[in-house]
Amino acid sequence: MTLGVALDASSAVNQVDASVELARQAAAAGLTSAWFGQTFGADSPQLAALVGREIPALHVGTSAVPVFGRHPLTVSGQAQTAQAATHGRYHLGLALGTKLLTEGGFGLPFERPVARLREFLTALRQLTETGSADFRGQLLTAATPIPARVPGAEKPVPLLVAAMGPQALRASGELADGILPYLAGPRALEEHIVPAVTAAAESAGRPAPRVVALVHGVVTDDVDAVRERASERLAFYEQIPSYARVIELSGGRRASDVAVIGDEKKVADEVRRYRDAGATEVVFAGTDLSGEADRLRTWDLLGSLA
């Protein structure tokens, strides 16, 4: 995967049908991957599996499934099923989640998130690579008295983490295949995120990690109006400490300050900045900020760069 898009059809009459159609358009534009966020609505691994099976030209991924409120056995079954459905083109993203959604939605205490992430990754890797596990940690247990292998999912599912803080980056470098930073500009990537996750992977004897940068942006001529809409849409993230920190490390004050908004040259230059900062893949979200014409214009540019 090189350049992709995050697809959100949650306002459509039928989200699955609309997602397939959007993915078809993305593939036609020359993009190489489609990613699906996880909310309290559609199940993103299922959505990725359905879309990936319909559109063989695309890799598909989730960005990302929180580890609170889930169990490695369940997530492994979802991920392996998606991997079998797409014949090896599925990529699983995990996230620590937030205190607001974990406690407000699941009624679970948001405690020791990095320790939970470590245990979750350890058990999940056993399951996705071997179809079995015998993990007994402080926070969770994952054992397989019966096999947990999904036939057709022989290729191990890549495990990525939406990590940006020092502890999460260390855990991801040691235990995952890469990271999915969001709202992290080139400065934060180059000076803080990429060095930390790379050093952790090296110390653990693991290969260089993938850095899949999720970028909020769109090609448009109406820059001021679109940035204002981005400010409204992204304001939620400013109240979450991990995002507020990475926005500041990127040189921004508001989340919209790190959004990539402008004409083709501006956006293409920013994509190159992300790659120069260490991103191995770039995925654009928010391409629907200014309507259908600008979305297609954005996808055409990204497809040409891919």
Rank of each mutant, 00 (worst) to 15 (best):
P158E: 01
P166S: 07
S172D: 02
Q126V: 08
A153N: 05
P145A: 11
P158H: 00
D177P: 09
T141V: 13
S132G: 12
A162F: 07
L159I: 02
S132D: 09
A171T: 07
V161D: 00
S132I: 09
G137Q: 02
F135Y: 15
R136L: 13
P156V: 03
A153I: 07
G165P: 08
P156S: 04
G173M: 08
A176D: 00
K155S: 14
S132H: 15
R149E: 10
V150C: 09
P151K: 12
A133I: 12
G173L: 08
L159T: 00
R170N: 13
V150K: 07
I179C: 05
A148R: 05
L139C: 11
P156L: 06
G131R: 11
R125Q: 10
R170P: 05
A171N: 03
R125W: 08
A171P: 06
T144M: 11
K155D: 08
L124S: 02
T130L: 13
L169A: 04
A176Q: 03
K155T: 13
A123K: 08
K155M: 14
L175F: 09
T128A: 04
T141P: 06
G137A: 09
S172V: 07
P145H: 11
F135K: 11
G165Y: 10
R149Y: 12
A176C: 09
S172W: 02
L175S: 02
L140A: 09
R170G: 12
L127Q: 00
Q138L: 14
R170S: 14
A142G: 00
Q167S: 15
E129M: 13
P156A: 02
G173S: 08
T128Q: 07
P156D: 00
A162P: 05
V150H: 06
L160C: 07
L139S: 08
L159E: 01
A143S: 13
A143G: 03
R125A: 06
L169T: 02
G173E: 00
G178N: 01
L127K: 05
G173R: 03
L175N: 02
P166A: 09
P147A: 03
P156H: 03
Q138I: 11
A176R: 04
G131F: 09
A142I: 01
G131S: 08
M164I: 15
P156M: 03
G152E: 03
G178E: 03
D177E: 06
A176E: 00
R170I: 13
A153Q: 09
A171V: 12
L175Q: 01
R170A: 15
T128P: 08
P156I: 01
D177I: 04
P166Y: 07
G165R: 14
S172L: 11
A168H: 04
